[in-house]
Design a protein around this nucleic acid. Structure first.
Lengths: 337, 337
DNA sequence: ATGAAAGCGCTAACAC
DNA sequence: GTGTTAGCGCTTTCAT
């Protein structure tokens, strides 16, 4: 029903080989033939079957995407704009390998191969996850987002999470805050660990002691932000500022503060991370660290493309800068009394 | 490098035909042979090449996705959770056809065929868009989300936008509101039109007149919600309630009201549509209509699967119920004076 | 119950 | 410049 290369060849009165040459821009075809074929191709709406193409070793122009937490990973969606652009520019299609972990025997490296995927974008993996190592070992060009893994044909990209939190702490310190708490992100996640490391390092650098009770562990959610804040507010010595592992947890913290009748930012400053839409709209609006997610997505595809196209390319390890967005949840430290 | 069916055949000492039969659950294979082959398949991590499979007419188990507004369509992302689940259950992979409109000659029906896509999920099309008709005409099983198009092998799913807004108006009417305004969604979009139609119908049913100046056209964005509200606030006779085409526009409206010193909900009630995360977090929190987006996504895949598997299935036209979520932006109409 | 062979749509030598 | 042919990995008659 759909036209094949043979139909074109027949209609043009040439061989399939000639049509194929036209299609693949071989220079050995006469102008006249080329034009006749091209006209037919347009007229018959012909487009080569990708399955047949990749079967004979041509590029599949397919990038696979692996999301440990499924398609609805809330952060993944913010990468999409940039991914989309870069995909279009380079002519790739994106395939989401859905069966991930459906069956115990499931093996996504096999899955990638069976789909002739040229490269994989991997997102949501934790530190030390075995599956990530398998991917690297497979030799399939892989680009990790927010996981610092490299290999012969694997690299990563991430925001500068550590420096971002350091900047946040310096900013709070500059506002006179001394007792600064941290509602940390998920332990075991690369970005969570980096942000926590940045917190410690900047506190040290500022000559501030971090009291163990001022570090509470969360998992990036509003829920743990809320609970973490309640815990901090129950302390005999309350912190005057708290840096959160995410905007969601900052919003939870804000909620806990409001319920406890603690004025933000007069009595307590709060900083988030990510700059999601909610940050602008919550009241008071949230001071936070903006990650350029579309840029992250776009660079990820560009780096992956390089990994695919140049087998000898060195593994990329790219860290993108962030930006502190000061809004209404931060202010000078309250005076001691 | 990757194992092929021939490698398995050789290792098992049988023919490729036999291996293929095992792989495809033919009953004519002896138990012993089957087991030997299966063991080798597991051991050698073999998985049939999909390109080769679909080349010989087997199902490609690939669903294509067409988004007129690109991957980052903010509503699309909310469908993803449900889509993901349904995909996994049915064993499909999802391919995003990225070249959409990159080149003037681009034809996505061809693109779908060249990728051996079994069915297409289409989202973001406007009313009367020619490309949507092309898709229907192509005969490729297609499921539209939020566009009421059907065809021999095409159907759609959407929320009950009209009834939802009718319910909203009835609710406001019950609170004593008489002058109810509407900041409409994008004209030409199916959901925008349905919501507006619901508004008019419910106003009529309640015996309320809709003053033309109380209908302002927007495009679902916060920006037009803001501007629309300012327009309404400048009227000699202000409305006491406004129903918005989306949460984003309701949030814009809220912002305009705040700036104008109009108390919500005491002087003015505001209702949104969608129940996005921001609705819960804005202050006062937004009364809105909740669409069950994951359910929409899940049903969409289920319906599409049926369209693919049963060539004679009647075209689905499914409308999902919504739910009014009453929060803080609505209250009794202010007393006249 | 198993295998030989043809062929899906295409590309890539190689010959003319 | 163009055509012939083999073959990518697989499924499917059709023999045996």
């Amino acid at each position: 029903m759909t036209a094949t290369i043979r139909d074109i060849a027949k209609a043009a009165g040439v061989s399939v080989a000639t049509v194929s040459k036209v299609l693949n821009d071989y220079s050995t075809v006469s102008r006249a033939t080329r034009e006749k074929v091209l006209a037919l191709v347009a007229e018959m709406q012909f487009r080569p079957n990708e399955a047949a193409r990749s079967l004979v070793g041509r590029r599949s122009m397919t990038i696979g995407i692996l999301l440990t937490s499924g398609l609805s990973n809330p952060f993944f969606v913010h990468l999409l704009g940039g991914i989309d652009e870069a995909l279009k520019e380079r002519g790739y299609d994106l395939i989401y390998l859905a069966q991930l972990s459906a069956h115990p025997e499931y093996n996504f490296v096999q899955h990638c191969r069976s789909r002739n995927v040229e490269g994989v974008l991997a997102f949501g993996f934790q530190l030390g996850e075995l599956d990530a190592d398998k991917l690297v070992a497979s030799g399939i060009p892989t680009l990790f987002i927010d996981l610092n893994l490299t290999g012969k044909r694997a690299g990563y990209i991430s925001s500068d999470n550590k420096e971002a939190v350091e900047g946040t702490v310096r900013y709070l310190h500059g506002l006179g805050h001394r007792r600064i708490a941290n509602i940390a992100g998920l332990p075991g996640s690369y970005v969570g660990e980096r942000r926590l490391a940045g917190f410690h390092e900047a506190m040290d650098a500022a000559g501030l002691t971090v009291h163990p009770e001022n570090i509470v562990v969360g998992d990036f959610t509003q829920e743990t932000g809320y609970r973490g804040m309640r815990q901090l507010l129950a302390l005999p010595q309350r912190p005057t500022a708290v840096v959160c592992g995410s905007d969601k947890s900052a919003i939870g913290a804000l909620q806990a503060a409001r319920e406890a009748g603690v004025a933000v930012p007069d009595e307590l400053s709060i900083v988030g991370f990510d700059d999601i839409d909610e940050a602008r709209v919550v009241h008071p609006s949230l001071t936070t660290v903006r990650q350029d997610m579309p840029a992250l997505g776009r660079r990820a595809i560009e780096l992956l493309d390089r990994l695919i196209v140049e087998p000898e390319a060195p593994p990329p390890a790219v860290i993108l800068p962030t930006q502190l967005i000061v809004r209404e949840t931060t202010g000078p430290a309250p005076r001691e009394h």
